[in-house]
Amino acid sequence: MSALVWIALVSLVVWLWLLLGQGFFWRTDQRLPPRAELDVWPDVAVVVPARDEAEVLPLSLPSLLTQDYPGHAEIFLVDDGSSDGTGTLARALAERHGGLPLNVVSPGEPEAGWTGKLWALRHGMALARERGPEYLLLTDADIAHAPDSLRELVAAARGGGFDLVSQMARLRVASGWERLIVPAFVYFFAQLYPFRWINAARPRATAAAGGCVLVRTETAERARVPDAVRQAVIDDVSVARAVRRSGGRVWLGLADRVDSVRPYPRLGDLWRMVSRSAYAQLRHNPFVLLGTVVGLALVYLAPPLTCVVGLAGGGRRAAGAGGLAWLVMSGTYLPMLRYYRQPLWLAPTLPFTAFLYLLMTVDSAVLHYRGRGAAWKGRTYARPETAPEQS
């Protein structure tokens, strides 16, 4: 057989394995587990790190202020050196909407060895713990919650006996580039960290989604969060692994009524979102980068290329194997497109989106070696640590 046929067959075998052997990552049925009916609702502190978030805060903060939570809850918004009046706006929104008590605090510039978000979380969590809450909700400033979000999270944590419950917020999908790239972002994340493996009685993977993390206060202290992961750029995965290492139970799933309101209308916006942390995920290892590039090419680019080249050159076996691999790939993408309410004809475009992600990953490595590392809102972390390995 020709090399083209072999490539097509290997790609097909890989896709059949991904279909059945990678924790059914492509399914979107991992939603909040059964909730407990509580007679007494525990105290909760909501910690929101915010740096230059005046654009999105009017869309997100009111959803926290107006939470329909039966127990006591209050919000700690940590203004992380904003220059756009984030703190002042937060206070004005609290006066306008009322609801949960709001505390706006500022920790100053991060100490050496800390990323900005984790430094802000450290300050907010320390202040929150003084109130003695049983749970901490760590949520980003661009996340809008349904009125019963906090109630549902706490009930799920209690009902399942989980120390950490995290929902991956539904990201905004409005522009053409968002439709092309955002559903694939979540699809690739789920492929890397299959939710079923995370949530299993004997977990085979560990991760969380940083936009919405409910963690038991006692567990966070035992896991030394966030101090234990203070340099992590991929902080959500790092926090989940720290909790798991401390003996805590972790659950992660897709959200139904927790949404990100941050817009990424242009390709450049999405490119920066991915490239700022992609190489950190690869532990800044050039050999892992090379393997990732080869793997992405074999898994995502080879099926359509071998199919098209086989059809053009009369290679029926290459065209058949490549076309079947492309079909399986597209089929696994359909549930995520449905979850994001996108047209299903986008499924066969996944190889093109994967090619863009390949370029973003390479660009992330280039930025790292140029000393620009992970950059976010005016801060650059030239050599940040990745998420620590699970022990």
Rank of each mutant, 00 (worst) to 15 (best):
L359V: 13
Y340V: 06
R170M: 12
G210C: 04
V308D: 03
I234F: 09
G85Y: 09
P388E: 06
V154H: 06
G322N: 08
V362N: 01
G268F: 05
R216W: 01
A8V: 14
P226F: 01
P147Q: 01
H368Y: 10
P107S: 05
L57C: 07
Q22F: 05
N103S: 12
Y264G: 15
A318Q: 08
M360H: 13
P226N: 01
S149A: 15
V48H: 07
G371D: 03
A375K: 09
A190I: 04
R222V: 15
S166A: 12
A141C: 10
A302C: 08
E111W: 13
G99I: 09
I234H: 03
W271C: 15
A94N: 01
G161Y: 02
L358H: 07
V48Y: 00
A354L: 10
V182Q: 08
A278T: 01
R338N: 03
V366W: 04
P33G: 05
V14A: 08
Y381T: 06
Y279I: 13
L290P: 07
L89F: 10
T361K: 09
V47H: 08
Q167T: 09
G210H: 00
P265K: 01
E389K: 01
K117Q: 11
A312R: 13
I75L: 15
V308F: 09
R35N: 07
G161R: 05
H72R: 15
P133I: 02
V261W: 06
L356C: 13
L121M: 13
Y340S: 03
T139E: 10
V225K: 04
A207T: 02
A312M: 14
S330H: 00
R341N: 09
D43M: 12
D29R: 13
F355P: 15
P226H: 00
V10P: 08
